[in-house]
Amino acid sequence: MTLIEVEHLRKTFLLAVRQTGRFASLRGLLSRQTRPVHAVSDVSFTVAAGELVGYIGPNGAGKSTTMKMLTGILHPTSGRIKIAGRVPYQERVEHVRRIGVVFGQRSQLWWDLPTIESFALLRHIYRIPLARWQANLQSFSTLLDLEPFLNTPVRQLSLGQRMRADLAAALLHDPAILFLDEPTIGLDVVARERIREFLEHINRENGVTIMLTTHDLADIERLCPRVVLIDHGGVVYDGPLATLRTRFGRWRTLIVDLNQSVDHVEVPDAELLRVEGTRVALRFDRDRTTAAALIAAVAARYPIRDLTVEEPEIESIIRDLYEQPGSLA
């Protein structure tokens, strides 16, 4: 069953252009010059019920803007969004009643009230039946270990505690979908792992569909069977994480152990990465040559004792992309 449908989503902001010259600020009041910025230029995807999707891309790629449109905060410039049969920005209240939202950087809790009181207020805001609320609270308290700080005011919680409380708060009303924007940002390794375990649990056991953005590649590798990768406002990849590797990892590394140590190795179509005694690492582009051809070329010049071909790490693929936005588009 399709839960989220997004078609040709587009969001264009009009940025005011600063006027310069005499009386600039006065003229700025009279006529505003603007220039369009396409935060999201064309994004389409669907998410089925029960999926856990990582929505990733470099800074400024349009992740947050998409998330804001999905959660009903922003209106799209054009395109179509349908979530559980509703258009978020047209039926905001009905839509948000059925979703949960967590922004990693900002708490949704009442900062000066004990955590449990925030939960109690949410019960009334979302009109959660008491029995349901109690059951959920009980379950999340156990899973997230909320008990020790339920009576502590939110402002006194540590970042990790606050995030756990925020997660519970976003799920008390049994939302069908959970949207998470950077849920592990700023947390230590232990806290991150705990949150990942929890997300995995509610996705598998409670059937909550989850869509999350993150900068932490470990989150993706650990959690997301599927990733939607966006860059420059458009989808550049949508599929399993494993395929991302074969699709975009052009670079391979050939490591050869020679019979004798060398100072330098010269082979066409390959770049020398390093020489460590008898071990030589060569980098080559899969599109320009093959491992077999390269091995033959090396063997023709030097006696080889052993060799391996290294696949690229998923991390390095994404890191390359994050460092050079647009390199895949």
């Binding site: 905001r92 009905e94 939202v101 900002r106 805001i125």
Partner: peptide, 14 residues
Amino acid sequence: QRGSFDGVLTRPLG
């Protein structure tokens, strides 16, 4: 100033 008005819009109330 903090951008937390977003959170207001994700709640089922006016």
